[in-house]
């Protein structure tokens, strides 16, 4: 794990990633939505929450490129600010899931024995409940807010990562470099976090990238059902709810937010697949 080696490995990784056209396209989409959520005012001069009763449900025009919604608010502005919410939920939820998954997986794989058996049975049991059911059941008892949504998606989504990390840890802990670290007097914590953890990060990064896509889809579905991000806070999902209510006269309310979700999710999926191929060519085509 010398510094220079890691550095050139990273350059190598970037080079391989850049050669993958689909991954670059995915990355570009991801980047675009990042910029959109960072500076939404550049993309639309309108206030996303300004209600204008004289301009209710107007089709796309020069003034409102993506039309207006049932309260006369500019759809482009709401989508630009909604991007911020969707990305925030996606990233925080996956952050939570990844942290839990990493800790459980490392602990379980490294110590084995009873703790491992108990934790992995717990994972089996969690996986018996349909995730979407679990999320809805938890939300039923809490006031839905963007923070609750993040936490709930995160807390119900770590099982895959923990299995992945456990499997990696099981094989890593038998390697010579772990024995070498042990011989130098390193304690368990140091071995786990300095020697094993960095080597599990590549597959975790892939899982996390794909996870962001999944979390954004889940959030938009929840918001669409009215139990996710609550209006007036804009989110792609809750704009679509208005689209459903006005399905007979305002197609633009349904088409554009869905397109944004589709592109974002596609972007993260392509990027994730690209990262997987670039970190480990052996996994290609799986």
């Amino acid at each position: 794990m010398a510094g220079g080696g890691a550095h050139s490995m990273f350059i190598d990784f970037l080079r391989r990633l850049a050669r993958n056209r689909l991954a670059v396209a995915g990355g570009a989409v991801v980047l675009f939505f990042f910029i959109l959520s960072a500076v939404p005012q550049v993309f639309s001069g309108h206030d996303p929450n300004r209600i204008d009763v004289l301009k209710v449900l107007q089709p796309p025009s020069a003034g409102h490129p993506l039309g207006t919604d049932e309260l006369g608010r500019d759809v482009l502005a709401r989508m630009a600010y909604g991007a911020r919410i969707s990305l925030k939920v996606g990233f925080v939820a996956v952050g939570i899931a990844t942290c839990i998954g990493l800790l459980v997986g490392l602990f379980s794989g490294f110590y084995g024995g009873l703790a491992d058996a108990v934790l992995m049975r717990f994972v089996d049991i969690m996986l018996c409940f349909p995730t979407f059911f679990l999320i809805l059941a938890v939300i039923a008892f809490l006031e839905p807010s963007i923070y609750i949504i993040m936490i709930v998606i995160g807390v119900t989504g770590w099982m895959g990562v923990s299995r992945l990390v456990r499997a990696e840890t099981l094989s890593l802990k038998e390697r010579d470099f772990v024995a070498a670290a042990r011989a130098q007097g390193a304690g368990d914590a140091r071995i786990i976090f300095r020697h094993i953890l960095p080597n599990t990060l590549a597959p975790v990064l892939v899982a996390a990238t794909l996870g962001v896509a999944g979390a954004i889809l889940t959030e938009s579905a929840l918001s669409f059902l009215g139990i996710g991000v609550q209006p007036p806070t804009p989110s792609w999902g809750n704009i679509l709810t208005a689209g459903k209510d006005n399905i007979e006269f305002a197609w633009w309310l349904s088409v554009y937010p869905g397109l944004a979700i589709l592109l974002t999710v596609l972007g993260y999926n392509l990027l994730g697949e690209g990262i997987r191929d670039a970190v480990d060519p052996r996994l290609r085509g799986r």
């Binding site: 579905a221 399905i247 869905g258 589709l262 999710v265």
Partner: peptide, 22 residues
Amino acid sequence: VFTGFAVPTFWLALLLMILFGV
């Protein structure tokens, strides 16, 4: 198939409702 993975089902439902229903 990749696009299919990314399509939110509820959105597709809306589009199909608009097209075939409305």
